[in-house]
Amino acid sequence: MFLGYQIPDFEYGTSPQDTFGLVVAQAHEAESAGFDCLYVMDHFYPLPLIGPIDGTMFESQTLLSALAATTSNIGLSPLVSSVTYRNPTLLAKSTATIDAISGGRGGFGLGTGWFEREHRDFGFDLGRLSDRYEKLSETLQILRALISGDPGVFSGRWFRCDRPIMNPPLRSDIPVLVGGGGELRTFGLAARYADHLNILCDAAVITRKVSAAEARCAEVDRDPATLLTSYTAYLFTADSDREAQVVHEAFMLAAAVSPQQPWADISSELRLPWLISYWGE
């Protein structure tokens, strides 16, 4: 079993300096508990169900660099980097730096991006979904070439590079994660280029999604067992199921969402349809 710990929220009512200390404390706890990888979001604003739009949000690659120097054995990766925010070779350079600082614990996490307001506010072009899939495909091709140590020349519609020299180099086994729920394009790119597929979907369709991922692997003659497949979930903990339900309901009410219809009043692109799990005695 592979277990990842994601830190999606940096709004603790503290100064940014004190907030970073709390993030480091979480990283140490996750490391001590035996989690395989620590993930951080690649956003400029808190997500709509998690915090206020003007809440604290650290830049992901900078934060991962700091955590690389303050942790010992846990993997470090974004979940996930939007391909709209960084040139692939710049992303490779910063990730190679994180990997070197951490002693070989860095990783890539990639997705198409979706948060329209932060793109607009910060001056990034979100573009059409089809364009973002093209960017994701080109980014994965460039990263795979860089990881192989033979990048050559790449000239795509969105990105290009000309035999970039990577030093520090990307290690040959640095993990590449693709995240999302698209059964054709996202899963297809994961089957072709990724080591790890993280699925975002409603809990009721997990089985279908896994079957779709296996089908995409079959299309490229890949053994599905070689594609680590995981699922993002909220986990509400308490001493009993009922107490955990109270914690869950309080979270949903704080986000102004009905526990009975958790995503009814939120536009489809802002929904976070993650499994709600209870951990009781």
Results as ranks from 00 to 15, higher is better:
Ala100Asn: 06
Pro52Tyr: 00
Val80Arg: 00
Ala100Glu: 10
Ser137Lys: 04
Lys93Leu: 07
Thr112Leu: 13
Thr70Phe: 04
Phe108Leu: 07
Thr70Met: 08
Leu91Cys: 04
Phe122Tyr: 14
Glu118Thr: 00
Gly55Ala: 15
Ser137Ile: 01
Leu126Cys: 14
Pro78Arg: 03
Thr56Phe: 10
Ser81Cys: 09
Gly111Arg: 01
Gly106Thr: 09
Leu126Ala: 09
Pro52Leu: 00
Ser72Arg: 12
Pro78His: 06
Leu64Ser: 07
Ser77Trp: 15
Ser82Phe: 03
Phe58Met: 05
His119Tyr: 06
Asn87Ser: 09
Asp99Trp: 11
Leu63Phe: 05
Lys135Gly: 08
Ser65Thr: 14
Asn73Trp: 09
Gln61Trp: 14
Gly127Asp: 00
Trp114Gly: 02
Gly51His: 03
Arg128Ile: 08
Met57Ile: 13
Ala92Asn: 15
Leu126Ile: 14
Arg132Met: 10
Leu129Tyr: 05
Phe122Ala: 09
Ser60Met: 14
Ser77Ala: 15
Arg86Val: 00
Phe58Pro: 04
Leu136Met: 09
Thr89Met: 09
Arg117Ser: 04
Asn87Trp: 06
Asp121Tyr: 04
Ala66Cys: 06
Gly127Ala: 01
Leu126Phe: 07
Ala66Ile: 06
Thr62Lys: 12
Asp54Asn: 06
Arg128Ala: 14
Thr71Cys: 11
Ser130Gln: 05
Pro52Trp: 01
Ser81Glu: 07
Ser102Glu: 10
Trp114Gln: 01
Gly51Val: 07
Asp125Gly: 11
Ser72Asp: 10
Thr62Ser: 14
Val83Pro: 00
Pro88Met: 02
Thr112Ser: 15
Gly104Tyr: 11
Phe122Glu: 03
